[in-house]
Design a binder for these strands. Structure first.
Lengths: 228, 228
DNA sequence: TAGATTGTTAATCGATTAACAATC
DNA sequence: TAGATTGTTAATCGATTAACAATC
């Protein structure tokens, strides 16, 4: 157990909370690089990513020592190391299941391509849609999914179908070899060990906002509870 | 400080992690109620929500004691108490800014209505779209936003515009009185104290999956690191 | 009463933060 | 050398979990 971390190999154990923030740092670095900044301090980068500097430095320390004391971080170098740590120095092939509004919106989202992903197909149970393209992404019959997954070495699937269909789609994707799933359907998915699922739940997000919103209203009645 | 929690008033301090799970419990209870279950145990509910039973009981204990030892939870009663705690016993008015693919997908998502929200308008900077409807939601010129927010008492806004426009839209929403924002644009938003922002970042989600996916591949080389 | 299941305790674990020594 | 800024330490805080007494 526990990697005997040798040279610069990216196999240290990184806390999950840190992993979830690496994409934010990468985005902030990309913005800085666009502005042709060569070097930045932890304060600047933290501000650009919307976190505090202590947390940023602690997070980056898990990756290794890529800053220079008294100077800051080399933007390009740090960008490379984070991208390598995340594993997006090469693109990952992704399929989106469900060519409804949401699936089409996702396929059309240009951000994926530049951030390490290639959407190789939109899949839909309606064979009438097959042959069309959305923003350059071909729509295929869901029946062709196993062939596409095998041929394009797809390991990540995005679920944009109604909740009622989500578990079956998941089972099919997993059977075809997909081992990571991003789920937009409001449903709890069961998957075998070794398969990762992340979910994006739109009404949950709104409900969490509503929870805090409810208490805000109350604050104007009672004491002054503002500015947090 | 710290509420002197009287009768059953929903003003105890609830941990943020618990708040984020209440919507999951509510969804699971709705599913059970549809199946006409009157009572359920913490084990059943936890399984339906995809969490472990200890965590569920701990979470529910923050709301009060709404279960019966030896019996379980009354589905309808618990549903009411969670909905009240979240603050969705009445509907919240919501505007979606950006009538592109994503905005249209969100407007068409039927789940919001039944979960405590009414989408009162889609707003877009392109006045040519105004007058159209998407799934019953009218599209308005963004210039009309302040009037709509005031008239419909909107406190929650959803941002589905390109990253470059997100901060300006945020500033305008906040100026109009919106105090909770759900942000789909890949951008860090600054808001004044008292305004809550939650973000849904699609490429971050994929990158987090990619991180774990990278290590899976490596596991087949080295020792047996499967089943987690 | 016996069986079942909650609500709570206490231990553990992981994440955050401030402070500062190391060092460019 | 003096000033700046990282990387790390240690303290604190919050979340998770298992176990079990309370109680239906």
């Amino acid at each position: 157990m526990s990697g005997l971390d040798g040279s610069g190999s990216p196999l240290r154990e990184i806390p999950e909370a840190t992993v979830a923030r690496l994409p934010m740092y990468l985005r902030a670095l990309n913005a800085l690089a666009d502005g042709s900044r060569l070097v930045c301090s932890s304060d600047e980068l933290a501000a650009a990513a919307g976190v505090n500097a202590a947390k940023l430095r602690k997070d980056l320390s898990y990756l290794g020592s890529y800053g220079t004391r008294g100077v800051g971080y080399d933007v390009e170098l740090l960008r490379f190391h984070i991208a390598r740590e995340i594993g997006i120095t090469q693109d990952w092939s992704v399929v989106i299941v469900g060519a409804g509004h949401l699936g089409q919106a996702l396929a059309g989202f240009s951000g994926f391509t530049s951030r390490g992903f290639e959407i190789v197909a939109l899949l839909d149970a309606d064979p009438a849609l097959a042959g069309q393209q959305i923003a350059g992404v071909p729509i295929h019959d869901f029946a062709d999914m196993p062939a596409i997954v095998a041929e394009r070495r797809v390991t990540i699937g995005v679920i944009a179908v109604p909740a009622a269909a989500a578990q079956q789609v998941t089972d099919d994707l997993v059977a075809a070899g997909v081992t990571s799933i991003l789920n937009f359907a409001p449903a709890v998915l069961s998957v075998p060990a070794g398969v990762d699922v992340r979910k994006v739940d739109l009404s949950s997000e709104l409900q969490i906002l509503a929870y805090h919103e409810s208490r805000k209203g109350a604050a104007s009645d009672a004491g002054t509870e503002a500015t947090a």
